[in-house]
């Protein structure tokens, strides 16, 4: 990565600091969901405000009782967004593989956000099924972005088998609880140094995104935090800035934490008045 060096000697990560996922390259490190916005216009304005280039969509049966609901796919494609289909709602590897293959045909993309969940209450991944599905889809030529628990062992296995990105959760999907176990995320970063890591799920507000990026994550995937904010477009702006801030802070290298204070001002020559 060629950094821009300012005349004062400072080094700043600039526009060639890109996110690479498989064969794909993005200048934005935010991946944004398209669900739960108040209306399509707000969705489009919010997506634009995030600066994202990659947006997620779900794959669902066409409803026999209520045929052909509006997908807004045309709006997304007109907006120039790369679409990332997900396998949300799949409980088994078999279901997820079928949905991924249908998505590839429907959307003409090998990108897949692989979700295989264990139950409706937690929406936590079923690790056994997730690993099985990931292996099948990688062998089938997919660019797999795998949604995972914040478990270093699972994340390492997903990276080792060839997932293009591994996406541990910050906290449960839609919970807005933020990064509940930064220590695990840090270990995962150390265990998986060479595969893009993206925090997917649980982001509630801008500082959560910054925290994840400061931990050295390559990107953030979120939806509800923007879509259900009181002012989605304003939150979208905030998320864009938060991701950029966290990325720069990570690259800048934070100071170590100290238990005791360390004066910033000179420690000699202080004015003293005798008691």
């Amino acid at each position: 990565m060629a950094d821009e060096v300012h005349t004062n000697g400072s080094v700043v990560a600039e526009t060639d600091d890109r996110l690479e996922i498989g064969e794909y390259t993005f200048s934005s490190r935010l991946i944004v969901g398209t669900s739960r916005y108040p209306n399509p216009q707000v969705m489009l304005e919010a997506l634009e405000a995030t600066g994202t280039e990659l947006v997620t969509v779900a794959i669902r049966r066409v409803n026999v009782e209520d045929p052909a609901p509006e997908s807004h796919l045309d709006l997304l494609q007109k907006g120039g967004y790369q679409v990332l289909p997900n396998t949300a709602g799949c409980y088994t590897a078999r279901e997820a593989v079928l949905v991924a293959r249908l998505a590839r045909e429907a959307l003409d993309t090998d990108l897949i956000k692989l979700e295989v969940i264990g139950d409706d209450e937690t929406l936590m991944p079923d690790v056994e099924q997730l690993l099985k599905a990931a292996k099948t889809l990688i062998d089938d030529g997919f660019t797999v972005l795998a949604y995972a628990n914040d478990d270093p062992i699972t994340c390492r296995k997903l990276a080792d088998m060839g997932c293009a990105a591994v996406m541990p959760l910050g906290s449960p999907i839609g919970s807005g609880m933020g990064i509940v176990n930064p220590y695990n995320l840090r270990i995962i970063r150390e265990e998986v140094p060479d595969t893009p890591l993206i925090v997917d799920a649980g982001i509630g507000t801008a500082s959560d995104a910054t925290t994840a990026m400061e931990l050295g994550y390559d990107g953030i995937l979120l939806n509800t935090a923007i879509a259900e904010a009181q002012h989605p477009v304003e939150m979208a702006h905030a998320m864009r800035l938060a991701v950029a801030a966290g990325r720069r802070a990570h690259r800048a290298g934070r100071i170590p934490r100290r238990l005791y204070a360390q004066a910033s001002s000179p420690t000699s020559g202080q004015v003293q008045v005798d008691a």
Binding site: G33, T34, S35, T56, H72, P85, A88, R94, R104, G174
Partner: peptide
């Protein structure tokens, strides 16, 4: 029956007894 039918082949396909058909479309999602 869990095999994706390529779009260009739709015109050539007819249903047989006990076939399980899935017709999906992209929708807004996270």
């Amino acid at each position: 029956n869990e095999s994706v039918i390529r779009t260009q082949d739709w015109d050539d396909v007819t249903l047989s007894e006990e076939d399980t058909v899935e017709v999906i479309q992209a929708q807004q999602g996270g």
